[in-house]
Amino acid sequence: MMTQRTGHTISDSTFTFIGCSEVQEILGQQAEDEKELAELVEEIPLDSIHFHTHSYFLRHRFIERAYPNDFAQWVVMQVGDHVLGERLAVVDPFDYPNLEDLREEIISIIDDHLSRMSIIPRVVFGEPFHFKRSRILEVPIGLEARSLAEFRQAVSEVDVSAIYFHMFEAHFRLGREESDFSAWIRSGLGLHELADCIRSINPYLGSLERLRSSLITACDEFLAKPS
């Protein structure tokens, strides 16, 4: 992923929402069978690993696909290999400290799977796997929050790319253990319990719209608690 920055930051007292716009770049490498897939996963730039795992959600904002990353989706839908698809589907990119480790895990799963197969599953009627990467442009959206109520309101109306940016990009970009949202709620508002609650939301469980709903629910439940 290549991110073009616009110089906007998040201060302690005010949360500034930043959205993002993605253009996809075709790398020109394609796999027609699972062995080729593993070989190319080893070669491609890390940006492409990010594209096919993390930023998958930016492209499937509303409707949840059956599998939460492009690799799993392809081996099931195009190759018809449900076993490998299921094994790749449970890989949670947040479990890995960096993209190189994530790459190693994907290769290891495919290699292990192929070592038990007498033939290499390949595309017969479907499409090959085309490797791509993103160029992501940060876009300040002009929305700010200074309190939890303002934050909740902004989350409910902001372009969904901001949810992606602060929940997914922040983790990768800043290398932090938590998202921009939980980090600000913890340090800016001092609401540790809510920050922990938001931190515990697994972004890989659904679409970005579902993630938006989970964030709003967490805020509403916290705001409804007697002080």
């Binding site: 716009s21 509303f62 442009l137 876009v139």
Partner: peptide, 15 residues
Amino acid sequence: SPKGTVDFLYRLSDL
């Protein structure tokens, strides 16, 4: 269009 899209386009065009 989806919620927030038009406002997002205005902000994007500022760049």
